[in-house]
Nucleic acid binder design. Structure first.
Length: 349
DNA sequence: AAGTCGGGGAT
DNA sequence: ATCCCAGACTT
């Protein structure tokens, strides 16, 4: 049963009132620079504020403007993104910066319909940028908004379905006030992040519990409904750590798999090195388990020492295989998956 | 509509 | 262990 307009206004008013008394102090707020807002939104996709904060500082310091980001090499951008995950975000970020600098005369798009055309900018991020930076009346719908709306209005639609996404976006856009859209969006997310949390929400101190459907019907623990269908595959990686003097053999990972654009080692059945190996690889004792959102990795590393007089042969082999010889003191500048960083740390790097 | 893409914190 | 985080893209 749809609520009447006055009740919508009451909800929005209460949310904003709560927000004005309980705002999070975040560095990208009170900035109307669309570049910095865009940067923060990309960093925060599927990422907690606490985890993203140090990356936001690193990026704004390294690249204060979209021009600085556009003129940086992708390798450097990925290295700065190292450890944050979902690396396509960093590649798309860099692509967009170049596009904006070279094709749009450095001028950031201002409207939702234009912003959503940018790589890596979906409905959430386009609404966030357009409302925060330009005051456009577009409601953000992130995990927080799903949760607050599902509970308050008692909506049982699966939030992972496209039907659910559409339904919640429609509702949020009916709720958002035309005079303070950005503030309402911030308020919804802060309310969900600090009070209406996934586990143990602070219903006792909730200013709208008396009209919250979930609270009144003991459904807080079962809303929102999210049908998860991620199947986790197990996968084993056998890495060869090939060294020749102070040079290491590295492989830049390609498309169609995890960690695209990042560096790790040659793996699997490199059993036929064409007589390059004088002796068998020596396995490192430790096995590494690494969890991704949809893969359970078990990695083993083996050490291969190439005699220095075979360096030319090794270099030729790398050339053929698409591997790269990297000097030991350059390794820190490669963007690497956390798994590889963990391994290197254990080796004293 | 379903599958893919990281890493970490809270419970 | 499980869930979820200021989601988006590809198939």
């Amino acid at each position: 049963m749809p609520l009447k307009l006055p009740e919508y206004q009451a909800f929005s008013h209460q949310i904003i009132k709560w927000y004005r008394e309980n705002p999070r102090d975040l560095p990208w707020r009170n900035s109307s620079d669309p570049y910095k807002i865009w940067l923060s939104e990309i960093i925060l996709q599927q990422t907690r504020v606490a985890q993203g904060l140090p990356y936001y500082y690193a990026f704004t310091q390294a690249y204060p403007t979209v021009k600085d980001l556009a003129l940086a090499p992708e390798s450097e951008v990925l290295r700065l993104w190292q450890g944050l995950g979902y690396y396509s975000r960093a590649r798309n970020l860099h692509f967009c910066a170049k596009f904006i600098w070279h094709e749009l005369e450095g001028k950031f798009p201002t409207r939702y319909d234009e912003l959503i055309k940018l790589k890596g900018v979906g409905s959430y991020t386009a609404a966030a940028i357009s409302s925060f930076a330009f005051g456009e009346v577009k409601a953000v719908v992130d995990g927080n908004v799903f949760r607050v709306l599902a509970r308050y209005f008692g909506i049982e639609t699966d939030i992972a379905s496209s039907k659910g996404k559409k339904e919640f976006e429609t509702l949020a856009n009916e709720l958002i006030p035309a005079d303070t859209p950005g503030e309402f969006n911030q308020a919804m997310m802060d309310f969900g992040a600090r009070l209406c949390t996934p586990k143990n929400p602070d219903c006792t101190n909730c200013p709208i519990k008396s009209s919250c459907f979930a609270f009144q019907h003991q459904l807080v623990g079962s809303l929102p409904v999210k049908i998860n269908k991620v199947k986790i595959k197990e996968r084993s990686l056998n890495y060869l750590v090939i060294r020749c003097g102070t040079d290491w053999v590295w492989k830049k990972r390609g498309a169609g798999d995890i960690w695209e654009g990042l560096y790790d080692f040659p793996s699997e059945e490199i059993s036929q090195q064409g007589g390059l190996l004088s002796e068998d690889p020596k396995p490192f004792p430790k096995k590494y388990r690494h969890l991704l959102s949809h893969q359970k990795l078990e990695a083993k590393f083996s050490e291969v020492e190439i005699p220095i007089n075979n360096r030319e042969k090794l270099a030729q082999w790398c050339e053929n295989k698409g591997f790269e010889l990297v000097a030991e003191n350059e390794i820190e500048y490669l963007a690497k998956p956390k798994l590889i960083v963990n391994f290197l740390t254990d080796q004293g790097f």
